[in-house]
Amino acid sequence: MWLWFSRLGSPKWFYELAGRWLPWTWALTVLLFVAGSALALLFSPPDYQQGETVRIMYLHVPAAFLSMACYLTMAIASVIALVWRMKMAFAVARSCAPIGAAMTALALFTGAVWGKPIWGTWWEWDARLTSELVLLFLYLGYIALHESISEQSQADRAAAVLAIVGVVNLPIIHFSVDWWNTLHQGASISRLQKPAIDASMLWPLFTMLAAFFAFFAASLMSRVRNEILKREAASRWVKALVKA
């Protein structure tokens, strides 16, 4: 166990292992996306209320789910990095940020496009959408802070503190927005609530969720490999690798 843990902390070991896994992970991603899109677009029934717009759900829900899972990964990696002073965990945390920010933006965009036909408006100050917007700001803040500090280890540690502060605040923000939303929009709540999902829609949703997570795994590994190259640029093995 400890051997494994200390190995995980070794950039060279991770770089090589991820390099071996990457082709398979990308292949799995493509496969799941093809299967998921077919299920979502062709083989799932239209919703009796939302019609064909329900097909947007198969993108919106996984993107929103991933945007939050990605933030959680970033925060956990930050805790590990700060507590055990593990350089690799800093690289993982930094790599999560751009992917998570992109997923959050995608969740917001698909949410707005989905909202137009069913709620009749592009934007509703709904608790979920608003929390997602705040999440985007948190990601942007993390990236901006990391980019503003020129010294690598200082940037890593400062951004890690911010990620942890953010993850402590997210539930509070979500709760308060939820509370505020029920206060102001009591009438519209019922039309925002989603009914229970039918089994015929669960399979496409699960496949798409798996596809998004496979994409997350693959792009995170690639991104961490880049981060390693950047951080270990002075080391012997990276120099040998670049020359080869």
Binding site: V134, F137, G141, A144, L145, L162, G166, F175, S176, W180
Partner: peptide, 20 residues
């Protein structure tokens, strides 16, 4: 401006309960 970007999202709960 960076401090504002980092901190304003965290101020939202205080703002919500205060003004409401």
């Amino acid at each position: 401006i960076l401090v504002s970007l980092l901190i304003l999202p965290l101020y939202i709960p205080v703002l919500i309960f205060g003004s409401s």
